[in-house]
Amino acid sequence: MTQEQKKLICITCPRGCALVVTVEGETVIKTEGNSCKRGVDYATGELKDPRRMVTTTVRVKGGVHPLAPVYTESPIPKPRIFDLLAEVRKIELTAPVKFGDVVIENVLGTGINVLASRNIPAKSETS
């Protein structure tokens, strides 16, 4: 099998090391340019199964704001991000929303929940 070099920037810490990763198929042969061991872990993960935490908003009916911020409980596979955003776009919550409320359970079958980032109190009748 042929070896191939891939360039990555490690985002584990703010330093942002420029990594050169040598891969053979799915296997990481060598990681260079990293300043610490976490760079190797990052390269392996990023090439095999890149994941990102996703934060966005979801509509809320009757709240002090029309939207509630939400986040994925843990990082989701990068290729599924826009599918997730489409799912979230379909949802409308009803105020009050509580911090930590599960907005979508097991989103896209990933086993990961989408949770509310904060409280959105109901809009009081008087205001």
């Binding site: 920037i9 985002i11 810490c13 703010p14 330093r15 942002g16 990102r52 990068k78």
Partner: peptide, 12 residues
């Protein structure tokens, strides 16, 4: 800004 944000906000 932070390099991290360059990667996960722009490069991605």
């Amino acid at each position: 800004g932070l390099t991290r944000n360059y990667v996960q906000c722009l490069l991605d």
